[in-house]
């Protein structure tokens, strides 16, 4: 289903994470931080709850991803435009869609590797008790989809600017707004200037609500559809943007 040339792009982009320190820095910081916050000593902590599950892990995943995932996606197109290699790439017989999709998949695969690196946490809860593995698996699926949505947003902002720092900041801001779209402060703010039905639409875009819904161990088609739409929409926007702006 995926074109051979897209696979080549995925391979090269995935490898490039490990050709620079970025990949290793990301993996080390992510794994260290998630390991720490999962067992952090505080109210609602793993040990106080006395439950062998990963709820404290999944509670922190969105906040870590918020800063780390845009760091993974920020270079994808900004770097190509800055160094001029975008010209090399887009004068090859490939389409903009293949390029964007290939780069997105490579980044997603990379974050999936990072998530897979958290397997000792799963082993720990299995050792300590008998967690509901269905919930754990769905939680991981939700985390992967959450990362996919953040990456799609991030790659869009990577196409907007040649400057990776600008891409990163815009990525974080937009990920935050969409993550927290259902939270009272953000809803309160936008309801000051938007009519009620638009506020409700905005609230339904909350990534956090859909993520938490999956974390409860229920597969709702609506949630899957939401993430597919989120990823597809931002990627489509990226393709349009890069077609328009590639030569600037």
């Amino acid at each position: 289903m995926i074109a051979e040339v897209t696979k080549s792009i995925v391979r090269r982009e995935f490898k490039s994470y490990f050709a620079s320190p970025l990949g290793y820095v990301f993996l080390i910081i992510f794994l260290f931080a998630i390991g720490y916050v999962t067992f952090e000593p505080g109210s609602g902590s793993f040990f106080l709850m006395r439950q062998a599950d990963l709820s404290s892990f999944f509670r922190y995943v969105p906040y870590l991803f918020l800063f780390l995932v845009p760091a993974v996606s920020m270079r994808l197109l900004a770097e190509e435009r800055k160094s001029g290699t975008i010209e090399l790439l887009l004068t090859m017989p490939v389409t903009e869609a293949q390029v964007v999709f290939g780069k997105f998949l490579a980044a997603w695969l990379f974050v999936a590797v990072a998530l897979a690196g958290t397997f000792p946490l799963v082993l720990t809860v299995i050792y300590l008790g008998s967690p509901d593995l269905g919930v754990v698996i769905l939680g991981y699926l939700g985390a992967a989809l959450l990362a996919g949505a953040f990456l799609a947003i991030g790659i869009f902002f990577s196409a907007i600017s040649k400057n990776q720092v600008v891409s990163f900041i815009l990525g974080v801001v937009f990920c935050y707004v969409l993550l927290m779209a259902g939270s009272p402060p953000i809803l309160g703010f936008i309801s000051t200037f938007l009519p009620k039905f638009l506020v409700e639409i905005f609230e339904s875009l909350s990534i956090m609500n859909h993520f938490e819904s999956m974390g409860r161990g229920v597969i709702v088609i609506g949630d899957l559809f939401f993430f597919a739409l989120m990823i597809g929409g931002w990627l489509y926007g990226t393709i349009l943007l890069i077609t328009e702006k590639k030569s600037n």
Partner: peptide, 9 residues
């Protein structure tokens, strides 16, 4: 292309 852009890594 001009300036021979390449993937440095």
């Amino acid at each position: 292309s001009e300036n021979a852009p390449l993937y440095d890594d």
